[in-house]
Nucleic acid binder design. Structure first.
Lengths: 143, 143
DNA sequence: ACTTGAACGTTAGGCGCATAACCATCGATG
DNA sequence: CATCGATGGTTATGCGCCTAACGTTCAAGT
C-alpha cells in the first residue's frame, strides 16, 4: 500500500471519527450528556436492565470505563445501580424515571446525528453504512 | 430517519473509530507513540517545520491539545521547539534527528494500519475511501 | 471440602481531546 | 502614534477511553 494512499485512508477515518464525535457533542450537550454516555442509556432503554459487564460488551469499552461513566450518570440521576440478587459480584444498572424521560429527546438527537453523517453522501446510503460495518469488522481484534 | 437505522449508522461509525484507534495504538506502541501523535510527526516530516497553529489546523485539534502533545513529543526527544524570529507570538516546531530516524518505521505502521482498515472490504477500496471523505466533509461544522 | 482459576467490579494513573479564561504579540485603524 | 480587535500560545479543568493491579465472589476440579 502506497504511503500517500495510506495517509488518505487513515486521515479520512480520523476526520470522520472526530467530526462525528464533535457533532454528537453538540447534539447531546442540550440534554446534559457527553458523547459515549448515550450508548449506555440506549442500551439500557433497549434491554431494561443490564449488568456492567454487559454494558462494557455492548459499548465496546473496558470495565473501568463503565465504572466511571455509570457513576457519573448515576450522579446525574439518569440511572440506578443495584446489587444482583443472584451474583454477589455483579451490579445491575437500569434507567431511572428521569433517564427514561430523556429517551425521546435522545433518540431524536441520535437520528439527527445519523442524518448529518450521511448528509454528505452522493451515492447509496445503505451501501455506505454497509462499508462502515465491513471496515469495523475487518479491524476487529478477534480476527 | 428510522431510529434503528440511525443506531446502525452511529454504532458503525463509533465501532470503526474505536477499532481504528485501538489498531493504531497497537502498531504505534512499539515506537513509543500514542495515537494522535503520529499525525503531528507526519505533518512535520511532510513540511519540514510548522507553527503550532498550523499543526492544530492540520490535525483538526484545538490549540491546547497541541500544546500538550508537542510538549510530550519534545520530552521524548522527537521534536524541537524554537521561537519564530519574525513573529514574537509563534513557536516553530520541527523534527529532531531522533524524530526523523523514526519516520520509516512510522510510515510502515501507518501503511499497515490503512491496510487493516480496508482488509474487511469486499468491494472497491477507492470507493470506500471516497465515501469516508464524503461523510467527513458532510459533518464539517463549516457547512 | 478445599483449592484454583475465571469473572465482576474498582482504584490509580495516563493519553488525547475539548472548552473557558488568560497573557503577549501583532497589525490595522483611528 | 495610540488604540483595539485578531492571533498564537498557555493553564486549568473535565470527559472518554485505556492498561495495570487489586479484592471479592463464583464455579469447577481434585
Amino acid at each position: 500500500m502506497d504511503s500517500t494512499a495510506a495517509k488518505q485512508v487513515n486521515d479520512a477515518v480520523r476526520a470522520l471519527a472526530m467530526r462525528h464525535r464533535a457533532a454528537a457533542a453538540g447534539l447531546l450537550a442540550p440534554l446534559g450528556l457527553h458523547p459515549g454516555q448515550e450508548v449506555l442509556l440506549l442500551e439500557l432503554h433497549a434491554h431494561g436492565e443490564r449488568t456492567q459487564a454487559q454494558l462494557a460488551a455492548a459499548s465496546g469499552c473496558e470495565p473501568p470505563t463503565i465504572t466511571g461513566s455509570v457513576r457519573k450518570l448515576e450522579s446525574a440521576g439518569l440511572l440506578v445501580r443495584r446489587p444482583s440478587p443472584t451474583d454477589g459480584r455483579a451490579t445491575i444498572v437500569e434507567l431511572s424515571d428521569r433517564g427514561r424521560s430523556l429517551m425521546p429527546a435522545l433518540q431524536a438527537a441520535w437520528c439527527e446525528l445519523a442524518e448529518r453523517t450521511l448528509s454528505g453522501l452522493s451515492g447509496d446510503r445503505d451501501r455506505a453504512t454497509a462499508l462502515l460495518g465491513e471496515m469495523a469488522t475487518g479491524l476487529d481484534p478477534r480476527a
